[in-house]
Design a protein around this nucleic acid. Structure first.
Length: 533
DNA sequence: CGGTAGAAAGTTTTT
DNA sequence: CTTTCTACCG
């Protein structure tokens, strides 16, 4: 391993930084050593400084609260490592989306031109990384030939083709037995592949083995056509690593520092890839927020972030809790959601906005009888704030739990002949992750929608709609808690993501009657409203 | 086999 | 309500 770079004056970190310990326990580099880093470290708060300058060994989890400058810390960390003498080519930063990878590469280049050129840090997505591994030649042979693929080129399977092949790989009878349509089956197979442990908990043994059979058949079809699913890239990379330990060793020795963004969204296969890259002692720098883990449904595993200190070698945690996005009243509301969380992972967001923007109010809950009333109020309030605060209405957002209600609201506003700039942006909470809006209306705050319930198979006596109706109408005959099947914690995290999108104004909006899949239905207010009072 | 009527189901989404 | 699936017909 290349250890030629300087590591003498790197700051040390305490295992866990709590809000009270931040100011006292941070060890700041001496003025002399600081000088060559001045441009990289200027403007950082003490927490961020600690995170950026932590020693480059072992494992560090940067628990980054929403709006606390996570991306900035990550890019500066990479530049800092380069400045310290780590060869850029021996640094690998992994993200989930192409957008995030591109954004980081761009900011890195802006920050330090030493990070550009031909010997540059590898900043890429997990999938593109695996593809790179598979495309490489080793001893004159292309790697993906080694795992049974003949063609010289990888063809990616698109969504439509994927459904077609899944339809071919299963029979209507089997789908009926599983109670799944093609779309549901598709995401079930995805979960099966990326997180088999979770899949085996979710389905019965019989169902699980049916799914495994379908996946086997589906895999044969993919293979015969030379089509790769996205998960196949990661899977194929892992298969290569396990069949050819020398190739794994080769990759395991390529990096001194491995950084992972959105660590809470990793799935078990990605953690395995990471394990290969870390096998010869490369440092791990994981950035993420367990409170914003909202992709469990597609295989993300919250455990690696929640058990970071025991799972990774020589591990410590640094928290980023100074928030530059939201006014204090909104942060207080967000903090309240985690009041019962164990201290090690509990973050208390503090506003870093120096003068608090004026004219802001405490987040407020608005209850309406009908959706039409709610939408009328949202429009009126948005116009009012636009006038008073000079915030363009098109920069505001209404956040939804599900697409169906979003579409209904979008239609309601196209029927009124309003153009996009005359209404707030409409998007799902999932789609809003990572974004921020001066004014947020959090919508769909009814029991059953947010938190969203899903019926357990064996309880599916009636249709889902009827189940929802039953809950609302029979008041308490049905044991709601018994019949409910949803990951309530993930729903709460989703709610938290919604709350933390707001910069200045936040409104919780609920209606006791609204159209749902075309039918007008009665709802009760979301339990989450009790948490923010 | 292919077209069609009627039934049934219906989160969230990136690579 | 819309989309997708299934069963049945010619």
């Amino acid at each position: 391993m290349d250890k030629r770079y300087r590591s003498d004056f790197v700051s040390t970190i305490v295992p866990v930084l709590t809000p009270t310990s931040v100011s006292t326990s941070v060890s700041i580099p001496t003025p002399v050593s600081m000088r060559i880093y001045e441009d990289l470290l200027s403007g950082l708060n003490p927490e961020q400084l600690t995170a950026v300058t932590a020693r480059n060994s072992g494992s560090l989890l940067v628990l980054a609260g929403a709006g606390c400058g996570k991306t900035s810390v990550l890019t500066r960390r990479i530049a800092y490592l380069v400045r310290q003498g780590v060869p850029p080519g021996r640094i690998c930063a992994l993200t989930f989306s192409r957008k995030a990878a591109e954004e980081m590469a761009h900011r890195l280049l802006k920050l330090d031109t030493a990070c550009g050129g031909k010997n540059t840090p590898l900043v890429t997505t997990f999938h593109a990384f695996a593809l790179r591994v598979l495309r490489e030649r080793y001893k004159g042979r292309c790697n993906f030939n080694r795992i049974g693929f003949n063609d010289d080129n990888i063809l990616l399977l698109d969504g439509k083709r994927r459904f077609e092949l899944i339809a071919q790989a299963s029979t209507p009878a089997v789908r009926r037995a599983l109670g799944m349509g093609i779309i549901e089956l598709s995401s079930a197979l995805e979960l099966l592949l990326s997180f088999p442990e979770k899949a085996s908990k979710r389905w019965s043994d019989e169902e699980f083995s049916l799914l495994a059979k379908i996946e086997h058949e589906f895999f044969n079809l993919r293979k015969a056509r030379g089509l790769w699913d996205f998960a196949d890239l990661i899977c194929g990379g892992l298969e290569l690593f396990s069949k050819y330990p020398d190739i794994a060793d080769d990759w395991g020795g390529r990096f001194d520092a491995v950084l992972v963004d959105e660590f809470q969204d990793t799935n078990p296969m990605q953690i395995d890839i990471l394990g290969v890259l870390l096998r010869f002692g490369a440092s791990l720098y994981a950035v993420g927020d367990d409170d914003q883990a909202i992709y469990g449904f597609r295989g993300a595993d919250i455990r690696p972030i929640r058990s970071f200190t025991t799972r990774f070698r020589d591990a410590a945690i640094v928290k980023l809790q100074i928030n530059y996005r939201s006014v204090t009243a909104i942060l207080e509301c967000a903090n309240r959601l985690w009041a019962g969380k164990p201290a090690e992972y509990r973050k208390t967001l503090i506003s870093g906005l120096k003068p608090q923007p004026s004219g802001c109010r405490k987040p407020k809950t608005m209850r309406f009888g009908t959706q039409a009333q709610a939408l009328e109020w949202i429009l009126g309030r948005a116009r009012f704030i636009e006038r008073r605060e000079k915030i363009p209405i098109g920069s505001m957002a209404v956040l939804f739990r599900i697409n169906d209600t979003l579409t209904a609201v979008a239609n309601h506003y196209k029927n009124m002949g309003l153009t996009d700039d005359k209404i707030p942006q409409l998007l799902t909470v999932h789609a809003s992750k990572g974004l921020e809006y001066p004014v947020v209306f959090l919508y769909d705050l009814e029991e059953g929608l947010f938190p969203h319930y899903r019926l357990r198979k064996e309880k599916r006596v009636h249709t889902w709609l009827e189940f929802l109706k039953a809950i609302v109408k029979s008041k308490s005959e049905l044991d709601i808690d018994e019949a409910r099947d949803c990951d309530i914690e993930e729903e709460l995290r989703l709610f938290y993501v919604g709350v933390t999108r707001a910069q200045r104004y936040l409104f919780f909006v609920t209606a006791s009657n609204k159209p749902f899949y075309g039918k007008e239905m009665a709802f009760r207010p979301s339990r989450f409203l009790r948490l923010v009072r």
